[in-house]
């Protein structure tokens, strides 16, 4: 279980997360929505360990360990996966090498044998097929020159290969055509299991037709201001965020109350 309590984070002196609370149980999928700039990606990056964001207060407990005390790579090896809103291009490093290095780093940690070149290729090709990626993407530099949608598929491919215990998907659906969206959703649904938790950040209720969340949260100014079932997403779709923001402080209190 992931338990985020009173999380405050800032970057270059600017406060972005302001007392965020969130609890995600094993096996649950939570959706996070919220206006641009409300801190969704910041939360995702803080969970993954981006050092540029300074955590000034609060805690993140992940199955009894202090997540914030772990370096980024250890979090990954312990089963945390972040699908980036903006996947990074790495010229000169082939996707194949990158994927293999990542998979083997995680297999080592889990006490599994590292894949040799043959086993890895067989595995990665099967997963690529599932996310509709052509084999040539193995031999191109990581994300370099990939279209927006291709980058997102590459993130889902990595998630499938790394089999995380906690996956955070930051707007993986943005910029995808409807077919790609379904592929992403299938990728997520395939991984759904009682041991796995997921946080899906999105602007579109559309995605939640395919990935049915256990809970939906609305982030505003670095705080969860409202939580509810999937019907909350429909309400947001209809009314926008204005009605949440215009409600005074009790709205936030209500959101806290709505947490299980």
């Amino acid at each position: 279980m992931l338990n985020i309590r009173n999380l405050h984070a800032s970057v270059e002196g600017k406060r972005i997360l302001n007392g965020l609370n969130l609890e995600v149980k094993s096996g649950e999928v939570h959706a996070i929505m919220g206006p641009n700039g409300s801190g969704k990606s910041t939360l995702a990056q803080v969970l993954a360990g981006r050092e540029a964001f300074e955590v000034t207060e609060g805690s993140v407990d992940w199955d009894g360990v202090d997540l914030l005390a772990m370096p980024t790579e250890e979090r990954a090896r312990a089963g945390l996966f972040l699908a980036f809103q903006y996947p990074v291009e790495i010229p000169g490093v082939s996707n194949a090498y990158f994927l293999k290095a990542a998979v083997n780093a995680i297999r080592r940690q889990r006490g599994l044998d590292e894949y040799d070149a043959m086993d890895f290729l067989a595995r990665v090709k099967a997963e690529m097929k599932a996310v509709g990626m052509k084999e040539e993407f193995l031999y191109r530099s990581v994300n370099e020159g990939f279209s927006g949608g291709e980058k997102k598929r590459n993130e889902i491919l990595q998630m499938a290969l790394l089999e995380p215990r906690l996956a955070v998907l930051d707007e993986t659906d943005s910029g995808l055509d409807i077919d790609a969206l379904k592929i992403v959703a299938e990728g997520v649904n395939r991984l759904r299991s009682p041991e796995r938790s997921m946080i899906v950040i999105t602007h579109y209720q559309r995605l939640l037709d395919y990935i049915v969340p256990d809970q939906v949260h609305v982030l505003s100014e670095g705080r969860v201001v409202r939580s509810g079932g999937r019907e909350l997403a429909l309400e947001l779709e209809e009314h926008g965020y204005g009605w949440i923001k215009t409600e005074p402080a009790p709205a936030a209190a209500g959101a806290q109350g709505a947490r299980p």
């Binding site: 993954a48 360990g49 981006r50 050092e51 370096p71 980024t72 790579e73 979090r75 990954a76 090896r77 996966f81 972040l82 980036f84 996947p87 990074v88 291009e89 790495i90 010229p91 000169g92 490093v93 990158f98 290095a101 990542a102 780093a105 995680i106 940690q109 530099s141 990595q158 790394l162």
Partner: peptide
């Protein structure tokens, strides 16, 4: 790029070496 590699479980020192070589 360094952060991206680390979020995939690759040690910082290895990630630096890899990016240096790739450059």
């Amino acid at each position: 790029a360094l952060f991206y590699l680390r979020t995939r479980g690759i040690d910082e020192i290895r990630a630096r070496q890899l990016l240096t070589y790739a450059f």
